[in-house]
Every structure is written in structure tokens, then in C-alpha cells.
């Protein structure tokens, strides 16, 4: 691959540009291939999929597969979509609320032990999640939260990283705005809700998009906690059918396509917040 670098304004040679576009186009087609396969196989019949002759799309697109997917009693599609939505919304909202309040308190309220609290939060960032997954499961199961919404949502609300990011952000928030609010008689609470939050929408949106994607795509925790079929998320449902291979292939592909649709929409609509979130945080939610 051509990995050269040239400043803006330097006249590029036509050949180099052509090579670059050719390489980018090939790469783009490869990157889009899996999305195409989801649609192609999802709207096909079993015999289309297993045909030895590759066809770009099946001769007829079977849109009725969608209705079939949602009415198949063996596949809890509607339920798992609902579970995923509820979990992702609650976790995103909860993390924004708890993490931003914590970050604001750390950044702005001059309390004696604030630094110690901050270090206690940062210390958790050094621990990889592998260490805690067994005892977290033990803890949640001893609380009786297995296969419950509580067990799926609550342990994921307290991400030290979110609080850390909000603290860093609020340290850079213009102090003058808040001081004006204080003069108007608002306390910390009032300044936070009326001045700080409304003026930080872009940052909240960036964290929210990251968190929503992370929650929706989470797999290990929902797999461990969501044991009853009624508590499966989309990922757990797809994984169960994938590893057991008990349902039709086209149904599985269509379920996967339906399962990523909300995120593709979020991605396309809110991409600029996502890019901002990724570049500011360097990590997926």
C-alpha cells in the first residue's frame, strides 16, 4: 500500500492519486462486503444460499422473511431487541448522569479529600476487566440478579473511565460561565443543571454514542447474566443460534441485519459525535 505523505497544496501526480483511489476503493469494497452478505443471505431462501453458483443477489428478494423472523416462536427476536434497547438506553442514561455528576464534583467542588477519591477512581482503570468478571458474576448471582434487568444494567453503570473523562472535560469548561451563575445565586446543583449541562451537549452526545454502541454490542456480561431466554439481548440470541445452529441460515442472517440496524442508523446520523468521542477518549464504550 502506498503510505506516502504530502502537504496540502502540493500538486499530486495523477498516477499516485489514481493508485490511491484504486487502493481505497478496493479496501472500501472489502469493508462493505459483510454488510452486503447480511442483506443478500437474509433475503434469500436456503437453496439460494447453498447454491454452488454464486449470485450477486437471489433472483427474487424474499422480504416476507422479515415477517417470518418476527413470528417464528423459536426465535425471541422482538423480545431480545426490546431487552437490548432497554439495557442500552438505561446504561447510557445512567452512565451520563452518574459519571458527569461525579466528574463535575471532582473537577469543581473544592473538597479536602477530592484527590484521594479521584485516585481511587483512576486506580480502577488499571485493572483489566478479566480480573473482575468471575467475582462480578458471583456478586450479582448472590444478589439474585441473574437473568434480571438489574443484573444486566446496574453493574455496568459505574465505569471509572466515564467519570474520569467527564472530570477532564469539566476542568477545561470555562469557569466564568459558572461564576456568573453563582453570582445569580445558584448553588453547585443549579450551576451544573442550568449552565454546565446545557453548554456541554456535544460532549455528552459523544460519550452517549460511544456508550450506546458499547452497551448494544456487549457480549460477555449479557451471556453470563442473561441465562433465561426472556433476558437474552440481541447478541446473546444471535450467538446462541450461531453456536447451536438450530435455525435456518437465512433467518439468522436477517436477525443479524435487524440487530445491527439501530446502530447503523445511530452511526450514520451521529457520526460526527462518534468521531469526536473516539478521538477524545481513544476507546470504545
Amino acid at each position: 500500500m502506498d503510505a506516502t505523505s504530502r502537504p496540502v497544496g502540493h500538486a499530486p501526480r495523477v498516477a499516485a492519486t489514481a493508485v490511491r483511489y484504486a487502493a481505497l476503493t478496493v479496501a472500501a469494497l472489502l469493508f462493505l462486503l459483510p454488510f452486503y452478505l447480511l442483506l443478500r443471505n437474509g433475503l434469500a431462501t436456503e437453496s439460494d444460499i447453498t447454491s454452488p453458483d454464486w449470485t450477486l443477489f437471489p433472483s427474487t428478494l424474499h422480504w416476507e422473511n422479515i415477517g417470518e423472523l418476527f413470528t417464528d416462536p423459536a426465535v425471541p427476536m422482538a423480545r431480545s431487541l426490546l431487552n437490548s434497547t432497554v439495557i442500552a438506553v438505561l446504561q447510557t442514561g445512567g452512565q451520563l448522569l452518574l459519571g458527569s455528576m461525579c466528574g463535575y464534583g471532582l473537577a469543581r467542588i473544592p473538597y479536602r479529600h477530592a484527590n484521594k477519591v479521584f485516585y481511587a477512581i483512576v486506580a480502577t482503570l488499571m485493572i483489566p476487566s478479566v480480573v473482575t468478571f468471575v467475582p462480578s458474576f458471583v456478586l450479582v448471582s448472590s444478589l439474585g440478579w441473574v437473568s434480571s434487568l438489574r443484573g444486566l444494567v446496574i453493574p455496568g453503570l459505574f465505569a471509572g473511565f466515564t467519570a474520569f473523562l467527564f472530570r477532564q472535560y469539566f476542568l477545561g469548561f470555562p469557569r466564568e460561565l459558572e461564576e456568573a451563575a453563582r453570582i445569580d445565586g445558584l448553588g453547585y446543583w443549579g450551576a451544573y443543571w442550568r449552565i454546565v449541562v446545557p453548554n456541554s451537549k456535544a460532549f455528552f452526545a459523544a460519550i452517549a454514542v460511544l456508550q450506546f454502541i458499547g452497551s448494544w454490542n456487549a457480549f460477555l456480561w449479557p451471556l453470563v447474566i442473561g441465562q433465561d431466554e426472556s433476558s437474552w439481548t440481541v447478541q446473546v440470541a444471535l450467538s446462541t443460534f450461531l453456536t447451536a445452529q438450530t435455525i435456518n441460515i437465512h433467518e439468522l442472517f436477517l436477525a443479524a441485519a435487524v440487530g445491527i440496524l439501530p446502530l447503523v442508523v445511530v452511526f450514520v446520523v451521529l457520526q460526527r459525535y462518534l468521531v469526536r468521542g473516539v478521538t477524545e477518549t481513544g476507546i470504545k464504550g
Binding site: 479496501a27 472500501a28 469493508f31 462493505l32 462486503l33 459483510p34 454488510f35 452478505l37 447480511l38 443471505n41 454502541i213 448494544w216 454490542n217 457480549f219 447478541q235 444471535l238 450467538s239 450461531l242 441460515i249 439468522l252 442472517f253 443479524a256 440487530g259 445491527i260 446502530l263 447503523v264 445511530v266 452511526f267 450514520v268 457520526q271 462518534l274 468521531v275 473516539v278 470504545k284
Partner: peptide, 22 residues
């Protein structure tokens, strides 16, 4: 956008496409 788009895709869905199609 095209290169970034798979970030929105879960590992489970990617595994499904890789294992059952490609």
C-alpha cells in the same frame, strides 16, 4: 465512514458472517 462503519457492528454479527458465509 466506510472504514469506520464496522465499529458499529458487534463481534457476534461479524462472527456470524465470517462463519456462515465467507
Amino acid at each position: 465512514s466506510v472504514f469506520f462503519l464496522p465499529t458499529a457492528c458487534s463481534y457476534v454479527v461479524a462472527s456470524l458472517v465470517w462463519k456462515l458465509s465467507i
